[in-house]
Amino acid sequence: MSKQRVTRRQFLNYTLTGVGGFMAAGMLMPMVRFAVDPVLQHNAAGDYVVTDKKISEITAEPVRVDFTFEQKDAWYTSEVTNTAWVYKDENGEVIALSPICKHLGCTVDWNKDKANPEHFYCPCHGGLYTKDGTNVPGTPPAAPLDVYPFKEVDGYLALGKAEPRKEA
C-alpha cells in the first residue's frame, strides 16, 4: 500500500498559493469596498432639509429661502448653503425653484431687472424665465429652472434635491 506522499514541491506550491491568496484578498477587499461603498451608502444630500420658512407664510410672490446642510465631497465635509425661490401658484400649490441658471450656472434673481418685471433674470447673459421657471425663448438658457421636491415638516417647508423639470 502506497501512502499518498506530498512532495516537497507540491507542499510549497500549496502553501504559497494559500498565503498568496490571503495576501491578494487582503489587498483586494478594501479596494472592492472602496469601489462599492459609495453606492451602498445612504446619500446624505438626498434627504430633505427643513428650512425656517413656514408653509403658511408662503405667498404668491416668490421669496428667497436659504437653507444649509452638510455636504460630503470625498472625505471633506462642508456646510453648504442653497437657495430656493418659493411661492404658491394659482392653485395654492407650493413651488420651489432652483436659482441656478440652466445656461452656465449663474444665480437668477426674481423681479430684479427693471426691463423684465415678474421674471427670473440672470445677470450674466440676460437669461429669462417666467414665474413658473419656464425659459423664455431667444435668451441663452435652453431648459426650465430645476424644481425642488418638498415636504411639510411640522408646518415648515422641507426641501429635497433639485431636479430638472419634467416637460409637460
Binding site: 452656465l104 450656472g105 449663474c106 450674466c124 447673459h125
Partner: peptide, 14 residues
C-alpha cells in the same frame, strides 16, 4: 477668500 467663493457661485457662468 470667503467672499470670492460666494461671488463665484453668483456669477459662475460669466
Amino acid at each position: 477668500s470667503l467672499l470670492s467663493i460666494q461671488l463665484e457661485r453668483q456669477f459662475k457662468g460669466r
